[in-house]
Amino acid sequence: MAPPSADSPATSFGGGSPDPIVRLTRALAVGCLLALIVLGLAWELWLAPTGQRTWALKVLPLALPLAGLLKHRLYTYRWVSLLVWLYFTEGVVRATSSTGLVVALAWGEVALCVLLFAACALHVRWRLQQAKRRNKP
């Protein structure tokens, strides 16, 4: 039987229950991702819509990695940590160039992006360290 890869759930679980740090970072990443989706939809559809509300489609790329995060796919955590910087940039630009409610929504988006990035980075780092420890002779 081949040893589990760094991308398999068994790597973080060691055949038993998940490591507390893995559980925490997974929950934080999934929660922040869902919050970004809800914030993006609420922002563009109800709270401060721009144009014909078509900007709500910007949350579609955020919906794609949700299944991968829930299935503990390490690769998904890696690319989400890159994808999130697009939303971070949008938040900073809108926070510094708009007025009113948009500023608060934009800073909320920035905060969620930073938390999501930190959760993904810590999750990846911890799982790779755990896999390295298991593979040492």
Rank of each mutant, 00 (worst) to 15 (best):
M1C: 15
A2V: 08
P4K: 05
S5W: 08
S5M: 14
S5K: 14
A6V: 13
A6I: 13
D7R: 10
S8L: 06
P9C: 01
P9Y: 01
A10C: 12
T11R: 04
S12Y: 06
F13G: 05
F13Q: 11
G14W: 00
G16I: 03
G16F: 01
D19I: 08
D19R: 10
V22S: 11
V22F: 06
V22H: 12
L24K: 13
L24D: 09
T25A: 08
R26V: 07
A27W: 09
A27C: 06
A29E: 05
L33Y: 00
L36T: 06
L36E: 08
I37A: 11
I37Y: 12
V38D: 02
L39F: 00
L41P: 05
L41T: 09
L41A: 11
A42K: 00
A42V: 07
W43F: 01
W46Y: 04
W46G: 06
L47R: 02
L47P: 02
L47Y: 00
L47T: 01
T50N: 08
T50Q: 08
T54R: 10
W55T: 09
L57R: 07
L57F: 09
L57A: 14
K58S: 15
K58R: 11
V59I: 15
L60D: 14
L60W: 14
L60C: 15
L60R: 09
P61G: 05
P61N: 03
L62T: 00
L62M: 05
L62G: 03
A63C: 15
L66N: 09
A67Q: 15
A67T: 14
A67W: 14
G68K: 04
H72L: 09
H72W: 08
H72T: 08
R73L: 07
L74C: 11
Y77P: 13
R78N: 11
R78A: 11
W79Y: 11
V80W: 04
L83A: 15
V84S: 10
L86D: 07
F88P: 05
T89D: 11
E90Q: 14
G91P: 01
A95C: 00
A95W: 01
T96Y: 03
S98P: 04
S98G: 10
T99K: 05
T99V: 05
G100H: 07
L101M: 06
V103T: 10
V103L: 00
A104D: 09
W107A: 05
G108W: 03
E109G: 10
E109C: 06
A111C: 03
A111F: 05
C113H: 04
C113W: 02
V114D: 00
L116W: 02
A119D: 05
A119N: 07
C120P: 10
A121V: 13
H123Q: 14
V124A: 10
W126I: 04
Q129L: 14
Q130A: 12
A131H: 11
K132D: 04
K132I: 00
R133S: 03
R134K: 00
R134N: 06
N135C: 12
N135A: 15
K136R: 12
K136M: 09
K136D: 02
P137Y: 03
